[in-house]
Structure formats: C-alpha cells, structure tokens
Simulated assay, not measured.
Amino acid sequence: MNVSRPQNIAAALPDVVTRYLTAHRARDTATAIAAFSADATVIDDGKTYRGTAAIEAWLTRAAGEYTYTTELIGAQQSDATHYTATQHLEGNFPGGTVDLRYQFTLDDGRIERLIIEP
C-alpha cells in the first residue's frame, strides 16, 4: 500500500511503528526502546546494534549528535510484518537534508528489525 497524501501516511503504519517514530522525533528514548523486542536488531549508517541495551545506546547517541527535524513523507506495507516509513530530515548534519527509509520488521507487536538507509 503506497500512501501519498500526508494526512493519511501515518494511518498506513501500525501503532508500534508510529509510536516509535513519534518517540524518536521527541527524543523520548524510554518510549522508543519499548517498541522493540528484547532481541531486536537495528542497522543504521553501516553499523548493527543488537538487543535493547545496544539500541538504547544508539538512540541516546543519535538524539544528541545533531539537531534536526523530521517529516513522515511516505509509508508502504510489504506484507503483514514488513513496513517502510520514509522520513525527510533537515538539520545540522553533513548535507543538511536527506530522505531516509526506515524498514521495519515486526514480530508479536514489537519491532524485531529496523534498517535505516537512504
């Protein structure tokens, strides 16, 4: 399912994904980490983080490294457990703007795997 109208984009994503994205945007690490399963994996910027302790450290570092805004600009469901959210970021990081795909794999109502890439 591809959604192009901004007001309907978030509706295309499951609650756990929108909860994570909202918490991450607000830099609410406790709420963001609660969206992950205990043995989840995150791959971001070529690095892999396994388990909630490593993911929490990544979220904490990412929240303080740069100042940026995010806007959800796209959402796609591949099947019952795979979703992609496309976020537009603008900030003081190298390049200043980027569109990133957040590729989620869900298991039992939690995020089991998240891959973030352009």
Rank of each mutant, 00 (worst) to 15 (best):
P6S: 08
N8T: 09
N8H: 13
I9P: 00
I9S: 09
L13D: 06
P14H: 00
P14N: 06
D15Q: 15
V17H: 05
T18C: 09
R19V: 10
R19Y: 00
R19D: 11
A23M: 06
A23C: 04
H24M: 08
R25L: 08
A26I: 02
D28N: 13
T29E: 06
T29Y: 02
T29P: 00
A30E: 11
T31R: 12
A32F: 06
A32H: 05
A32P: 04
I33S: 01
A35Y: 07
S37R: 04
A38P: 11
A38Q: 14
A40P: 05
T41S: 11
V42P: 02
V42F: 02
I43H: 08
D44W: 04
D45W: 07
K47D: 06
T48C: 10
R50L: 07
G51C: 03
T52D: 02
A53P: 01
I55M: 05
E56V: 01
A57L: 04
W58A: 07
T60V: 03
A62K: 07
G64S: 05
E65D: 00
Y66W: 01
Y66D: 07
Y66Q: 04
Y66A: 06
T67S: 12
T67Q: 11
T69G: 06
T69A: 01
T70K: 05
E71C: 02
I73S: 09
Q76Y: 12
Q77D: 11
Q77F: 10
S78V: 14
D79R: 12
D79W: 13
A80C: 12
T81A: 14
T81M: 11
H82Q: 07
T84W: 06
T84M: 03
T84F: 01
T84E: 04
A85D: 12
A85T: 12
A85E: 11
Q87K: 11
Q87R: 12
H88Y: 14
L89E: 13
E90M: 13
F93Y: 12
G95P: 03
G95Q: 08
G96I: 14
T97Q: 14
R101I: 00
Y102Q: 09
Y102H: 14
Q103C: 14
F104V: 04
D107V: 13
D107E: 15
G109N: 14
E112R: 15
R113E: 15
R113V: 13
L114W: 02
E117Q: 14
P118I: 03
P118G: 11
